[in-house]
Design a protein around this nucleic acid. Sequence first.
DNA 1: TATCAATTTATAGCGATTACAAACTTGGAA
DNA 2: TTCCAAGTTTGTAATCGCTATAAATTGATA
Lengths: 136, 136
Amino acid sequence: MIDFKKILKEHGIPLSLQRIKILEYLHNFKTHPTADMIYQALIEEMPMLSKTTVYNTLKTFTEKGILTALSIFENEVRYEYNTVPHIHFKCVKCNKIYDISKTYDCLKNEELEGHKVLEHHINLKGICKSCRDSEE
Amino acid sequence: MIDFKKILKEHGIPLSLQRIKILEYLHNFKTHPTADMIYQALIEEMPMLSKTTVYNTLKTFTEKGILTALSIFENEVRYEYNTVPHIHFKCVKCNKIYDISKTYDCLKNEELEGHKVLEHHINLKGICKSCRDSEE
DNA sequence: TATCAATTTATAGCGATTACAAACTTGGAA
DNA sequence: TTCCAAGTTTGTAATCGCTATAAATTGATA
């Protein structure tokens, strides 16, 4: 059993039931959910939950480095629990987002045209394995 | 003088004053503007211009391949006139988006974990040259 | 130049997100 | 354990980016 309270404390975030539940959800379901998906999932268990709380909490978590906010391919923000570095693949048919655990040494630039590179985000687009299989 | 009417015709887009002006703006100012930025820039010259027209026109241009719509880093769509392939660098200090003319052969994967890769988008983040210079 | 389809405009509307103020929790001190 | 201040949550209203719709206008063709 993971101690979510400890994770929050370690990141300097005061505890609350809502924060624990949201963190738990993001840790358990690595589906790159939107704020609304998280809200819909938790409202059954916590009928008084407010959408504002979900947005505030995701903002706090992102600022404190627990989560990463993804703006990939479409005009919607998705969130994921921080783990090892990886890249994202989005299927143009089923719209699922897959994590690909691949690192690219060729991107290890510290500097480019005088700009200092701190992060790089790689987003791939195509047709996923399962859609290709059902295509025949 | 570039013949914007010709460009529109070549892409099968019927002419209109609004379309010519929007295309001209995107060609002349490569600042990756949002729909609203384009609207604000053109409203002085064309006081009757409607925001709906800007959105419709950008959609048409994107579908016809004149423009590319960028969803990078933030929850807003930015547009750019299509030129050679390149990647984007966003400065975390001044928020400017720079075009970097670099291609990565290491990303030329046709397949990855069974998924068929059709496109890749690389977005870099860091501190731009001009912000570094003024930092000292 | 007349016609008619296509485009533009203005308004209303929608979904995602934020602002705000009141009510409620939490954690620490007495 | 009780109380209090600070911080958090809630609900409502508002904002932002974008889309739908229908009437008015424009542009290409005959």
